[in-house]
Structure formats: C-alpha cells, structure tokens
Design a protein around this nucleic acid. Structure first.
Lengths: 156, 156
DNA sequence: GCAAAAAAGGAAAATTCTTCCTAGCAGGCC
DNA sequence: GGCCTGCTAGGAAGAATTTTCCTTTTTTGC
C-alpha cells in the first residue's frame, strides 16, 4: 500500500473529501470514500489525534461582522536576535486584529495581515499598537483593494 | 436592545463563543450564551442562512500534509483594465496552490500566498504557471521563514 | 393595560455519533 | 500448507446531538 506522510490512499481521500465538504456526516463521508462508517470514523479520529486535522473552524464573513478592511503591514525590525523575535511574536499573538504574520526574507522582516472596520480604525491601530510593538523600526502599510481569494483548503 | 450589523448582543456572543470553541454542541453553546438549546439553535441557523457564518472548515496541518513551504508572490500586471483583472482572478481561482490573493495598492499589484512542498516545487509552479497567468508582467517571490500566526478568527 | 408579535423554553422525534463485539484478510513463522 | 497474530472493516446497539413542534413567556406598540 502506497503511503505518504504516514497515510494511505484512504486517509488522503478522507482529507480531500472533508476539505471539499467539511460538514459531511460520518455516514456520508464513509459512503464517499468507500468505507462503512465505523472504520471511517476511526480514521477520522486518528487524523485528528495525530494533528493532521489541526482544527475545525467557523469562518465568519468579514464584511458582515463589520471588518471589511484588510491591510498588509510590512514591519521592519531593529535587531534580529532571538529575544526580539520572541517578544514580537508574543505581541502579535496577543492582538486579535493581526490575523496573519510571517517572517519573510527579502525586503522586509515581517508581513502581517491586519483586519479593521475602517481605514481610520486601522490608522489608530497602527499608531497606538503596531509601531510600539517590541523591536519595530518601521511599518509600511498596503490596503487591500479587493479580495480575490482566501481559503484554508490545501492542494492535497 | 443594542444592535450592530443587524445582530443583538446574544448573536454576537454566539459568534464569539463559537469562534473560540467551534466544536461546541448546541447544548453546550446554549449554556454558555445563556439560552436554552432551541432559541440558540434557531439563531445559529439564521446566522448561517444570512451568511454571517460563511462556512465551517477543517484546517489541516500544512507540514503534516507535506506542504511546509509558504511563499508570498508580488505579482505586477501589465494592464489594469477590468478584463485583465477578471482573467487573472479566474486563473487564481483555478489553482489550489494559491491560497490567498489580494489586489493591493502600493508597490505591487497583487499579493499572493502560495503553498508548496518544497522550494523546488514552488519554482516549478512559478515558471510553469504564475508567470504565464493572464496579464502578468513580473513576479517577486519572498519565502516565509517562519509562521508566527495564521488564523481565521476575527476580532469581534 | 391590553393585544399582537417576537422570542424563549420543554418535550419528543429524527438523525448522527460512538462504542462494542465479531468477522475477514494479510503477513510471518514453523 | 497450516496456523497464529495483528490489523482493518463491518454490523448492531446505545448514547448523544440535532431538529421539529407546540406551549409559555417576554417585549412592543397602541
């Protein structure tokens, strides 16, 4: 049996099927992957235990909860030692307006996505929070004019 | 009763509670928001119907499914007419490796996040797909060296 | 203060999830 | 080959959850 990352074809099929239709019941899922519900259920539990399925989430409509503005902030840091990095990461974690943060090579140090209700609200967040986060040297903000795609589904 | 975006305090509490713990059963959720399960269930259905809750998703561990590489691609476009934009958006939609795409102001036109199994795999995707997408003038790639945060939970 | 409308609650039905036990199959060993 | 062992699947029953239906309470407008 072909194995990839410790999973056989049936496991992959479960992941693909569930990604496409996350609300499928065990029975419906079992049907689609060609198992009866019990073994299917056991595999699903194992995938959750192993952390392959990291979590289940509800995804809200940003606009409908009043958070229609996405801003990408390029943050440059003063020093690159581990302590600064750590302190910055903690600050990122503690602010729910920051929904994404990656340490990137290239021009700038961190790339953040920040959500806000309005441009003004973002500017307040920038001035009151972002620029005062540990080690921040400069912040360069780009407003998203349109969202083309944003998904949690991975190409497996 | 205070209303924001057509929802009262209880609706918001449901959203906040479910965002924090998406797997709560109706009964547990009802308990937490101080309702009995029936009205709680009705509100939940309404939030789903209205699209405030856009979807429920399963989130996979990128590393554990062999997609440990995140790349941010700044894509510059030749023309900015609506047709080019449309064609580009369609191409983005059709490639599951592209998990995010925003039209941004500032330096560059589009910011994409692409997932891949390795740097080599990304480079193939870049050469075979990205640069040939409609209207693309140039692509500037930044590899993510570390993921600090990535969440679907909104600050409501 | 009263009537109408809206929201909440309780009980029961339907569905789904979870467990338990049995059966089938493949690989290793004599 | 025959047999044991371990792994995976399947069926049936029990538990829990979701969904519906109907009644009661609360709120709102006059």
């Amino acid at each position: 049996m072909q194995m990839r990352n410790g999973m056989d074809d049936t496991d992959w099929k479960i992941l693909r099927t569930l990604q496409a239709e996350p609300e499928l019941s065990i029975n419906a899922l079992a049907d689609k992957v060609g198992l009866s519900h019990t073994p299917c259920w056991r595999r699903l539990k194992k995938l959750e235990e192993d952390g392959v399925i990291a979590s289940r989430e509800i995804v809200l409509d940003q606009r409908k909860v009043g958070l229609g503005v996405d801003v990408f902030a390029n943050v440059r840091i003063t020093r690159h030692d581990e302590d600064t990095l750590e302190a910055f990461a903690e600050a990122v974690e503690s602010h729910p307006q920051i929904v994404e943060c990656f340490l990137v090579g290239g021009d700038s140090d961190y790339l953040l996505r920040v959500v806000a209700g309005s441009i003004e609200e973002y500017e307040r967040f920038l001035k009151k929070v972002l620029v005062h986060m540990p080690g921040v040297a400069s912040v360069n903000s780009s407003f998203a004019m349109r969202r083309i795609k944003l998904t949690t589904r991975l190409p497996i």
